[in-house]
Computed example of a mutant assay.
Amino acid sequence: MLKLQPIIFIFTLLCFQINFSQSVNIKGKVDSAVDVENIHVINKTAQVFTITNSKGEFEISASLNDVIVFSSIQQISKSIVVDKNMILFKAIRVVLEEQITELDEVIVGKVLTGNLLSDIKNVEGDAPINFFDVGIPGYTGKPATQSERRLSEASSFNPKSGGSLGGFGGSVSATALINAITGRTKMLRNRVDLESREELMLSIKGRLAKDFFISNPLAEDLKMDFWFFCSDDENFIKYCKGQTDFNILIFLRKKYREYIENRNLSTD
């Protein structure tokens, strides 16, 4: 009977070892002095990722000794190694420090003393006047790009110089018809679409590239080619414009697999 004790001990030890080596879903919470939503949680070892909800909560698959990276614009990045307690209790609690960017003190314009009569004499120039001050309606949205302005002019269906053609319940400028026939309107529309894709691609690259390539490694000289590969996808605008970082990362992950497959095929 006594001889069985070492065997039972070894068996129990092996059971614990097997349990710890298996992947489990760990629930966690991020605490910080600033916003805790949309923090990137990346299992660098298993190459899986997720983001936190509005309460800083998340759930991610992990095994013993996996490295999990927490990253966001507002907080300092932090890496933790999954230990036995995290696997046993299937829980993680992480505190992130706020990312503070210190700027040198800059004094612009006149230095005010707090004495109203004195400060009025030191102020130069008149206050700027905008279209609201004079009662004129104005546009306050995003300024159109040069290509967007050219497309608007080329496809305008208002009467222009050079004559107009009646029909279809209104008048159509001859210039717009000529542009449509010659293909200039289509060319400008394609240019606007290309610029829109490139602007969105650069925005995503600047915001997510660092975290994405942590779990999806790629040679430095291939990274820009990958971003253009993503932006060329016909569904790029649909899946990335106005979407959450989580949805964008899912799209990027799918394109990453396609990109790697294409690279492997081209080298065979």
Rank of each mutant, 00 (worst) to 15 (best):
Q17S: 15
I18D: 11
N19G: 11
N19E: 12
F20M: 14
S23F: 07
I26F: 03
D31N: 11
D35Q: 05
V36P: 00
E37C: 02
N38T: 08
N38Q: 14
I39P: 00
K44Q: 09
T45I: 04
T45K: 04
Q47A: 09
G56I: 00
A62C: 07
V67H: 14
Q75I: 08
I80V: 15
I80G: 06
V82A: 05
F89Q: 14
V94F: 03
L96V: 09
T101N: 15
D104A: 10
V106M: 13
I107K: 11
K110C: 07
L112K: 08
L117C: 05
D119S: 06
D119E: 10
I120H: 12
I136C: 03
P143G: 02
P143S: 05
Q146A: 10
Q146C: 02
S147L: 04
S152W: 12
S155N: 08
F157W: 11
P159W: 07
S161K: 15
G163Y: 13
L165C: 13
S171M: 11
T175F: 07
I178F: 04
N179P: 01
G183A: 11
V192I: 07
L194A: 13
E195S: 03
I204S: 00
R207S: 14
R207V: 08
F212T: 01
I214Q: 11
I214R: 11
L218F: 07
L218I: 10
D221C: 11
M224I: 11
D225Y: 05
D232N: 09
D232F: 04
D233T: 01
N235H: 09
N235W: 04
F236N: 03
K241H: 09
Q243A: 15
D245G: 05
I248A: 05
I250A: 05
K255C: 02
E258L: 09
L265S: 14
